[in-house]
Simulated scan of single mutants.
Amino acid sequence: MNFLKQYNVIDFYNMEFCYGIDCEGEELPLEVILGFSKKEDEDLIATNYAYLNRIPEKHIAIATVNYGDLLCLHPNGKIYHWDHEANDLYLDMKVINGYLEQNTNLKFVADSFDQFLSMIAKIEEDDDDPSEDEFKNPNIPFPDEMLDRWFQNPKRIFLLPEQTIPIFLKKFELTEKGRELLVKFKKEGIFE
């Protein structure tokens, strides 16, 4: 609570260097340490509401990391890494309720919030990762499988960093399915 009172939101996107933490040998670039903000992608309450039932019970999202992942605080005070590719709910029509069983085995990060803060370090951005360039390149479309997730929850666009939204909107325009998604955004009043 003292951290929120003193710093509130820390937006790592607007910093000169890339900062992150090491989680079991994997570098996780930090995006935002959440606080109270009018911007939904920085707001603690809005983010936790958006991920309700997607992150395990009793966990609270406290930071966004690694382009779609979260750092979560457990009531025991420990910090865990919620990986959207491993721990999110996924729709599967072969399953009775429509979702695969959720993987709630989150990776351990730190014993406390203070330990997590002490782990933050400047990291080198990997400019040699072609998949990362494709993800940020507004001229390369998203695969249809990725767009399916947006159809399920179009409001998650507001969880993206503000500067990323125009890139994603341009990428959506590049495919027929992406253009259908943009129509859905308009119908739901997400974008004009």
Results as ranks from 00 to 15, higher is better:
F3G: 02
Y7G: 12
N8V: 00
Y13R: 07
M15S: 08
F17R: 14
F17A: 14
D22P: 04
G25A: 08
P29R: 01
L30Y: 03
G35V: 03
S37K: 05
S37L: 03
I45L: 07
A46T: 10
N48T: 03
Y49D: 15
N53C: 11
P56V: 08
P56M: 03
E57M: 13
K58W: 14
K58N: 15
A61D: 02
I62G: 00
N66V: 07
G68V: 04
L70K: 01
L71D: 04
H74K: 08
H74N: 10
N76H: 01
I79K: 01
I79H: 00
Y80A: 00
H81S: 08
H81W: 07
H81P: 04
H84K: 08
A86K: 11
D88K: 02
D88F: 00
M93N: 14
V95Q: 11
I96Q: 10
Q102P: 05
N103K: 02
L106R: 00
V109P: 00
S112G: 08
Q115A: 05
S118F: 02
S118W: 00
S118T: 04
I123M: 05
I123R: 03
E125F: 14
E132Y: 12
E134P: 11
F142I: 08
F142A: 07
D144N: 06
E145S: 15
M146H: 13
L147K: 06
L147V: 11
R149G: 14
R156T: 15
I157S: 09
L159N: 06
T164M: 15
P166T: 02
F168V: 13
E173I: 07
E173Q: 12
E173K: 08
E176I: 11
L181A: 07
L181M: 04
F185M: 07
F185N: 08
K186G: 09
K187V: 14
K187F: 11
E188L: 09
